[in-house]
Amino acid sequence: MKKTTLILGCGDIGMVLGRELLAAGHQVIGARRNVAALKGTGIKPLPLDLSDEEALAALPDADYVVYILSADRFDEASYRAAYADGLKAVLRTYEARAKAPRRILFVSSTSVYGQKDGEQVNETSPADAKGFSGKVLREGESALFKSPLTGTAVRFSGIYGPGRDRLIRQVLEGRIAPKTPPMYSNRIHRDDCAGVLAHLIALCEAGKPVDELYLASDCAPEPLYDVMAWMAKQLKVEPTEVIQAPLRKRSSKRCDNTRLCETGYAFRFPSYREGYAQVMQEGGFLAEPV
């Protein structure tokens, strides 16, 4: 029988994941407020508002539940609704079922880390961010870990990909990050986000061990200045303005993906160079291939 995967918050990453799971033989249900975007994808649409108790009660049983909701706005109320209250409601729903999912995957973020001095961080590092976003995400993770259901949280670093080209546009405007002090940045291509989630589900299907927490970032944590300088060279742009980020907002850490790589996952875009080359080429930013 086909395995059923329910993707809650089936947006950009969810649709890429859904296509991969369909190719692997899964039945895929995509839940989102507006399901028009799912037409023709092969993903079964499910209109859903997580604040609707009746809709929650009607969620289908599934072998895997992937929670990829995103906040409507960058404020604490929106983050709490998406990453804490929404997840807790889903957990309560499935905890009450006779048939539990084999695993619930929760998409979290490396914003849970508060390190600012270029420290290397992994799954065992303190995650004590002072901002509301990191705190709320940690609350969601904690709810998952305390649940009797089997779950895994995946902390993605800065996601980029088609349509996520803010950094490219900043470089095209002649802007660049300061060279000193170095502000380390960590990134992961959208397709690798989907690939990591599909990989963890495949491990479960193969009966292989899966941890409760993974840090998912590519293999090149580098100073943001170096990333933008490389982009400027590809785009043939001469930077003219240094971006001055407020020190209180500065985040600088180096994400270590060893635990994920040890599961056998091979990054499609091991660094920003391969990934942004694809985004710049497909987005029409380059006249010639990198």
Rank of each mutant, 00 (worst) to 15 (best):
L149Q: 02
D63G: 05
F74C: 10
L50D: 07
V171C: 06
R164H: 02
L91T: 09
E288T: 14
W230A: 05
P246V: 07
P178L: 02
V65N: 09
L286R: 02
A57C: 03
E173F: 00
I168P: 06
K3I: 01
R250T: 12
P246G: 13
E119S: 03
V112L: 06
M231T: 10
Q244N: 14
K253E: 04
A127W: 02
A37L: 13
L8D: 01
D256H: 02
L144N: 10
T5Q: 10
F156A: 13
M183V: 14
E20I: 11
V227Y: 15
L8I: 15
E141Q: 04
S125E: 00
F156T: 07
R259F: 01
A232T: 14
R273C: 05
I7K: 03
G14V: 05
Q115V: 09
L69A: 10
D128R: 12
I68Y: 12
Y79E: 09
P181G: 04
Y265V: 01
L56R: 12
D211T: 05
L21K: 05
I13S: 09
T240F: 12
L59G: 08
F269P: 02
E20W: 11
D218W: 05
S111A: 09
Y276F: 13
K253F: 04
F156P: 12
C10P: 00
F74H: 13
Y113S: 09
G131A: 12
G25N: 10
A202R: 05
A58V: 11
D218G: 07
C10Y: 03
S142Y: 08
P182K: 14
E76C: 11
G275N: 06
E241R: 12
V90N: 06
K249F: 15
T124H: 13
L38C: 10
C204Q: 02
P182Q: 14
F285G: 00
P162R: 15
G161F: 03
K130I: 08
L48A: 13
L69V: 15
D226N: 13
V196T: 04
K249L: 15
G86R: 00
G11M: 04
L215A: 08
V90M: 08
M1L: 04
I201V: 03
P182A: 11
